[in-house]
Design a protein around this nucleic acid. Structure first.
Length: 470
RNA sequence: GUGACUAUCGUCUAAUGGUAAGACAACGGUUUGUGGUACCGUGAACGAGGGUCCGAUUCCCUCUAGUCACCCCA
């Protein structure tokens, strides 16, 4: 049937011989089918939008990040927790908040086969709190410090440093009200940033008080802006209704001017929040961290109370973007049905951190490189090589090899390219009498030794090289 | 979600309305049991689909993806 259609379509061109035409039509039909499947093949071989592979070449950067995180989490007494990447969607509606962009526009929503409404996590705090309550962690001795690392998902329009799946590390502390914990949290974030060699980083802090004082402030702000509504940009006029505090973030000159004299959230803090913030600043001053107070700082999630902060990096052109951020969420556990538990935490955007490391040429983690190469020649030697490999490896010698290659020449070429210092060669002759050639790749000299002496001979050359370097 | 720009071997680049060139990387070789350099050789690409045309990688449309700005965020 499909073929008939194609024929009909082609007939209008008409001019060709009948036989030839039929031939072509068949090909065309075949092509049509194969191309549509080729299209699917194409999709098959393309990562989803905003999703990416982190290839081996990039891993040393990530490894350095992972190590710094593991280090810091240990130093500050955090215990690792791993959470599911999928939760009931409802969890995020309740915590991050309906009306926030993260939930309204960027949530990866699915219906499961069982009919549950679920979402890929857009952040980690919600799931963390769920786990905290579900496992009754409230009975543990406070403060409870938890550390997690993993992918999070946001259905955004991707660009550099902004992916639909990106990696975050989260540090969270439960059960402590004291502002010194806020300071320590920021100190920890700073420690990680420092360990990664990142420069021109700024910590912005602010306090948004309790939900009550915040509401109060929002009213005042709206009142102030409403009076001069026509001076706002189009965007901000919409924000005035939806989320007035966001207007403070606007980059339009006229809005910045207008908000310059707008009421500040700090002036509307309740007594306790104000006191809390004051103490936090005192601690921070004591720490000599590069922090600034940004009264315009508002975070895009509903659950924050009191302290909020962001870790901002600026490049040579002065463009700024956030590497991470966090704050207090003293009401969140309670609002989910747990026992009232104060908490504070922050997340770091790992993809952005890696990007920043590359930009300012931070050295990646150096993996230990093999310094010995094992070459084999001939069937018998090949058979023995696997065992020899594992023996050497058991003796703490990191081996490179190219077992798939045949000629000694090509194997030595690889050895040379890898920059190894020793090559162990077993050929037919050596395989027969259980010896091996140990070749010093620097001097080019070599000797034949028995298997028993092999490890020592190799190590001796390595050691000599090391001594020479020193 | 809106707008703009882009899309050629693994990577970086070139050219072209008429069967795509180079560099780097890869692989192999230069008398077969020894590395480098050099030399030689091999494989490797027009993102997908449609249209215009005798003929499209090139022009047009759609899709996909990336980058940028907005929105927002890490």
């Amino acid at each position: 049937m499909a073929q008939k259609k194609v024929v009909a379509g082609k007939v209008s061109h008409g001019a060709k011989k009948t036989g030839e035409k039929k031939e072509n039509d068949k090909k065309a039909a075949a092509k049509k089918i194969s191309t549509s499947s080729a299209n699917q093949e194409e999709m098959l071989l393309q990562a989803l939008r905003g999703m990416r592979d982190i290839l081996p070449d990039e891993q040393p950067y990530w490894e350095r990040v992972r190590r710094a995180l593991a280090h810091a989490s240990q130093e500050y007494g955090f215990r690792r927790i791993d959470l599911p990447t999928v939760e009931y969607a409802h969890l995020y509606l309740r915590t991050v908040g309906v009306g926030t962009d993260i939930v309204d526009k960027e949530l990866y929503l699915f219906n499961t086969r069982g009919g549950d409404r679920v979402a890929l996590r857009p952040e980690m705090t919600a799931g963390l709190c769920r786990a905290y309550i579900e496992h009754g962690m409230g009975v543990l001795s406070k403060p409870i410090k938890l550390f997690s690392i993993g992918p999070v998902f946001r259905y955004d329009r991707p660009q550099e440093g902004r992916y639909r799946e990106h990696w975050q590390a989260n540090f969270d502390i439960f059960g402590e009200n004291d502002p010194i914990l806020d300071a320590q949290t920021i100190q920890l974030a700073y420690r990680v940033i420092q360990q990664l060699g990142l420069k021109s980083i700024e910590f912005q802090v602010n306090s948004i008080g309790t939900p009550e004082s915040r509401r109060e402030y929002e009213k005042a702000l709206t009142r102030y802006l409403e009076a001069q509504k026509n001076k706002l940009c189009q965007n901000c006029r919409e924000r005035l209704v939806k989320n007035p505090m966001r207007i403070l973030d606007c980059k339009e000159d006229k809005c910045i001017q207008l908000t310059a004299h707008a009421p500040q959230s700090l002036d509307y803090l309740d007594l306790e929040s104000r006191d809390h913030f004051k103490h936090l600043l005192e601690y921070l001053d004591e720490l000599e961290l590069p922090y600034v107070i940004n009264t315009r700082l508002v975070r895009g999630l509903d659950y924050y109370t009191k302290t909020v902060f962001e870790i901002i990096s600026s490049d040579s052109e002065g463009k700024k973007y956030a590497l991470g951020g966090g704050g207090r969420y003293d009401r969140l556990i309670e609002s989910l049905g747990g026992e009232a538990t104060p908490a504070i935490g922050f997340g770091l955007g790992l993809d952005r951190i890696v990007l920043e490391m590359k930009r300012i040429l931070v050295k990646p983690y150096q993996e230990p490189r093999p310094r010995v190469f094992l070459a084999q020649l001939g069937d018998m030697a090949k058979k023995k090589s696997l065992k020899l490999f594992s023996e050497l490896e058991k003796n703490g010698i990191l081996i490179a090899e190219s077992f798939g290659r045949g000629s000694l020449k090509s194997q030595l070429r690889v050895a040379n390219r890898l920059g190894v210092e020793v090559t162990i060669i077993i050929g037919q002759k050596e395989a027969l009498d259980d010896t091996a050639i140990v070749k010093d790749m620097v001097s080019g000299t070599q000797e034949t030794v028995t298997h028993e002496r092999l490890v020592d001979a190799a190590k001796k050359i390595l050691k000599t090289n090391q001594d020479l370097k020193v």
